[in-house]
């Protein structure tokens, strides 16, 4: 990573050089996330913006402190810490105390990335590691959902946002159940159009389904992500929930609701598709995405939590080395019968 791009490359084929560097990919992700981010800030107010800034600050500061001196500048410049911090912030509830968002950024980079050896070596998606930590550490704060303030209440920052470090202030505003909570505990569906444009409560960046898809398509078009992963996740979720609806339409949520509710879209397009923590081969990508989709529905419908995207992706992250191992393409002319025999 320290190596500058050489002018002349002497190496065996493939000789085509892709003009894709880490910093360019990260810039693309930031562009792709911009619409959903702006929408989230617009809908949840200044507090949401502060949370995003806090989690980005936590991520960048940790990267700065923990990286060796000679790598610091290059690593910070490629913007991966900013992307991690932003992704984490987008999956946090809007009334969360800022210090928790900062701590989440610290854990994301510290325990999710640096401790594994830095960018490219981590087994789990860093932003989700941070989120999983926060959810386990502060279960109440992480599941308190404030209602959307809308543009009129833009400057009203919830008191709970501004709690001093290590302290909490009970959320005093209007709390409001997420569509998935309504589904799980009250058995109540939400209008599809509200889900698509994001007029529901939830995490800052997960609500506006259409904008997330827009950004995801941009990334797929720019080839920053493997389109097979989000595609297979969404197909798996839709197929599994359709099956459940066929069994009992009263009890189970339908496929469109399942795809557009919760953090499925942001997870599928921006987290599961993280090239570091997902399989390399096309076949592996299909297996990975299908696994995520099935786990999401299993956790949502049959598990104790209303939402399961985070755990589904983390579990499949753990399975990624195994998937990679079993989907290695056959070495040309070798081992027709046992695909893995060639190099062992």
């Amino acid at each position: 990573m320290k190596r500058p791009d050489p002018k002349l490359l002497v190496q065996p084929a493939p000789l085509l050089k892709q003009p894709l560097t880490t910093s360019m990919a990260m810039r693309d992700v930031l562009i792709a996330l911009a619409p959903a981010t702006l929408a989230g800030v617009w809908m949840f107010g200044l507090g949401a913006l502060l949370i995003l800034l806090a989690s980005i600050a936590g991520a960048v500061a940790t990267e700065w402190v923990l990286l060796p001196d000679d790598e610091r500048r290059a690593q910070l410049a490629n913007g991966s810490a900013i992307v991690t911090g932003l992704l984490l912030g987008l999956t946090l509830p809007p009334a969360l105390p800022l210090w928790m968002a900062f701590l989440g950024g610290v854990v994301s980079i510290g325990l999710g990335k640096i401790i594994w050896g830095g960018l490219g070596y981590n087994l789990f998606n860093p932003a989700l590691v941070g989120r999983a930590f926060l959810l386990a550490a502060f279960p109440v704060a992480m599941t308190t959902w404030s209602a959307q303030t809308g543009p009129t209440g833009f400057f009203e920052v919830a008191a709970s946002n501004l709690a001093a470090p290590f302290m909490h202030i009970d959320f005093d505003g209007v709390s409001s159940a997420t569509p998935l909570n309504l589904m799980k505990f009250q058995h109540q569906s939400t209008a599809l159009w509200d889900l698509m444009i994001g007029r529901t409560s939830g995490c800052i960046g997960e609500t506006s389904g259409l904008l997330l898809i827009l950004g995801g398509l941009f990334l797929a078009f720019r080839r920053d992500l493997d389109w097979r992963i989000p595609a297979s996740i969404l197909i798996a979720v839709a197929a599994f929930t359709s099956l459940l609806v066929l069994i009992d339409a009263e009890r189970y949520p339908g496929p469109l609701f399942s795809v557009f509710s919760g953090s499925l879209l942001i997870g599928a397009f921006y987290m599961a598709s993280d090239p570091v923590t997902s399989p390399l081969t096309p076949k592996g990508a299909w297996i990975f995405g299908t696994g995520v989709g099935l786990l999401v529905v299993l956790i949502r419908v049959f598990g104790g939590f209303p939402e399961g995207v985070m755990y589904a992706i983390l579990l499949m992250n753990a399975a990624t080395p195994l998937i990679d191992r079993y989907t290695q393409p056959r070495v040309f002319g070798k081992g027709l019968k046992s695909p893995r025999g060639g190099h062992e």
Binding site: P97, M100, F133, A136, A137, F138, M167, H168
Partner: peptide, 20 residues
């Protein structure tokens, strides 16, 4: 140590907190 408004890190008294 912190007074009544302290927000406990639940994960710390759970097994994962031990490992971490």
């Amino acid at each position: 140590l912190f007074g009544p408004n302290f927000e406990p890190w639940v994960i710390m008294v759970l097994p994962p907190g031990g490992f971490l």
